[in-house]
């Protein structure tokens, strides 16, 4: 589905179903350099279970036009504009990595628009190592190698994908390779520069569910704890053993189960 958001063509995956009023809407926000396809199993599930799905391609990502947004705050404002364009009042918001920071900022500053918040592979701060920033600034493919080497757990590097026949490392690399030049650096820089995480977390009003991997090197559990401890709204969390940062790729089924249960709790 295509919408115009802030004057730019925007793609959202809706799971082959049109958005219908009165249904719960799930808004999925991808991580740095990725696109809607990172959420394909989870988004397809809800779309085929009577709920609205909006798995977005952020500006400049995937099938969406425009330039990538340079800050987490700008991404949060854009999510509000996206819901306006889709005539959706309120959504269950699911964010991964960079998308989780955008979701936190959005939930804090647009409190009425978020029914529940699921944060996947998240933490604060979300610093980016200088060699990775340098590599992505130069559009050096070694940057993608660093992201994937740090992003998936040692177990996932060896394989055992839940999706038959697909090589997790290869999937991640190819997805990131599809990002246009400059996109990955803009995203990494936005994560690195975001300073309001803890403050915003304290302003969130809706229930928050964290899904984290105990082998996450990019947002390790202690970084998740810093964010979770700042949330005053109801918080729940699930730790996936052996999972790294790329939960949607590494543990798609468990992540789906977590979202189903979270959605059921909120009714």
């Amino acid at each position: 589905m295509e919408l115009t958001v802030n004057g730019s063509k925007t793609y959202i995956y809706t799971g082959t179903h049109a958005l219908e009023p009165g249904r719960t809407t799930w808004l999925f926000v991808h991580g740095a350099g990725m696109d809607h396809s990172a959420w394909i199993l989870q988004s397809r599930y809800f779309a085929f279970h009577g709920q609205n799905v909006m798995a977005v391609d952020l500006p400049g990502h995937g099938r969406s036009a425009g330039e990538p947004l340079g800050s987490i705050e700008a991404q949060a404002d854009w999510l509000a504009a996206l819901l306006d364009a889709a005539s959706v009042e309120q959504a269950m918001v699911v964010g991964h990595s960079m998308g989780s920071l955008a979701a936190v900022d959005f939930a804090a500053r647009y409190r009425d628009r978020v029914k529940g918040l699921a944060l996947v592979g998240t933490g604060f701060p979300m610093p980016v190592a200088e060699p990775l920033l340098e590599a992505t600034r130069a559009n050096d493919p070694r940057g993608i190698g660093m992201i994937m080497n740090w992003g998936i757990s040692p177990q996932s590097h060896l394989g055992g994908n839940q999706a038959p026949g697909l090589w997790i490392h290869g999937q991640g690399v190819r997805l990131l390779e599809q990002a246009a030049p400059g996109v990955l650096f803009t995203d990494m820089n936005a994560c690195n520069a975001y300073e309001a995480g803890v403050a915003r977390a304290g302003e969130i009003a809706c229930p928050v569910h964290f899904v984290i991997g105990d082998r996450d090197m990019m947002t390790p559990p202690k970084a998740t704890a810093a964010l979770a401890d700042a949330v005053t709204a109801p918080v729940s969390r699930t730790v996936l053993r052996g999972c790294g940062h790329m939960t949607p790729l590494e543990r798609p089924n468990e992540l789906l189960d977590e979202l189903i249960a979270f959605g059921a709790r909120l009714g």
Binding site: G159, G160, N161, P164, G165, L166, W167, H169, G170, Q171, R174
Partner: peptide
Amino acid sequence: EERVAALEGGVGAI
């Protein structure tokens, strides 16, 4: 399938 994909540097195999 995964093993051959990994050795070839692919995204997956059948």
